[in-house]
């Protein structure tokens, strides 16, 4: 396990370096010189512009620019945001809690729905419950979140008038905060639940026909303990790994929901950054998500080995 981890860590670092080169390259060779997006800003006086260009190394060849950028990034210097006029680090950190709250709640919601529904579906395969839940799962992942979001607004804001659809980060108090989070969390959470339910059901179906489950039944255990202790525990191993892999996707999924409900989170910051060609912000968020993807890949591998004693990494 130790040797595996070291090798895995080295591969991860190499992957991250390659990813950062790809991302930087895409920005650097893009037409219109987006790396110097501030150059078109009339508020920046020419001599200051020259200084910024020099300090960012924009007159160096691209590989040298990349190295300078990577060195600064590693030291925690993510440059100034072109538009927010504050260090990118502070800007991203100020947006992060909102996204974590919304996306985290959505993640929990999707697990709370998917695990029981998927398990019951599998135990009662072809029952009415199974058919209804499978149909809902199918509908769920054919519905894009930007349409579900609009449907929710139409139903809960326009028709019923229960919820306001504009998220306000200044709102205080527990209940108002919960109230304004309901729709974004529900939209993201239900979309995640639709995918996860199918996965839990498939994994449970595979487990439920195993010999050890039949043995548990044959020795007279109660059905509840057969299902919960023998079948479900094993069926959830691949589910946990998939969950670990889905964590970085939460940030990708948040982009659209944050846009619909005007949630001032990371996804919104990325879209605003793209529109205003705020390269340091775009770079920091894109690369941040890349780090999450790589790290959670390793976590998924480790979890798999910890949870399933049959898996041994040499």
């Amino acid at each position: 396990m130790g040797r595996f981890l070291i090798r895995r860590a080295i591969v991860s670092v190499i992957t991250l370096i390659a990813i950062s080169m790809v991302v930087y390259g895409i920005l650097a060779i893009a037409p219109g010189d987006p790396l110097s997006g501030f150059a078109t800003n009339p508020n920046v006086p020419p001599e200051l512009r020259q200084r910024i260009r020099a300090s960012m190394g924009l007159d160096d060849p691209i590989p040298v620019q990349y190295l300078k950028w990577a060195g600064a990034y590693l030291q925690g210097d993510w440059q100034q945001s072109f538009t927010a006029k504050i260090p990118v680090r502070d800007y991203v950190m100020s947006r992060l809690p909102t996204t974590l709250k919304i996306s985290g709640s959505a993640f929990v919601l999707s697990v709370l729905i998917a695990v029981p529904v998927g398990v019951i579906s599998a135990i009662k395969q072809y029952s009415l419950f199974d058919q209804v839940s499978t149909t809902f799962a199918f509908i769920g992942f054919s519905l894009p979140t930007f349409f579900t979001g609009i449907l929710f607004i139409l139903l809960f804001t326009v028709q019923l008038g229960w919820l306001d659809f504009v998220y306000d980060s200044q709102v205080t108090g527990f209940w108002p905060q919960v109230k304004q989070s309901i729709m974004p969390v529900a939209v993201l959470g239900l979309a995640g639940a639709a995918q996860l339910t199918r996965f839990v059901r498939a994994s449970m179906l595979e487990t439920i026909n195993q010999d050890y489950v039949r043995t548990a039944r044959a020795k007279g255990l109660r059905e509840k303990s057969v299902v919960v202790l023998h079948a479900m525990r094993n069926a959830l191993i691949p589910v946990v790994t998939v969950l670990a892999l889905q964590v970085p996707e939460l940030f990708g999924g948040a982009i659209i929901t944050e846009q619909i409900f005007r949630v001032p989170g990371i996804g919104r910051a990325l879209i605003d950054g793209i529109y205003s060609k705020d390269v340091p912000v775009v770079m920091a968020i894109t690369f941040g998500i890349a780090i999450l993807v790589v790290v959670f890949n390793v976590i998924a591998d480790i979890l798999y080995a910890v949870l399933d004693p049959r898996i041994r990494y040499a």
Partner: peptide
């Protein structure tokens, strides 16, 4: 393949279409 799987897909999709569409 591993490298492409680890790429931050959604942000890249948005960034590339925005930066290159005029060209």
């Amino acid at each position: 393949t591993d490298l492409f799987i680890s790429l931050p897909q959604v942000p890249l999709l948005l960034v590339i279409s925005f930066l290159y569409r005029d060209a």
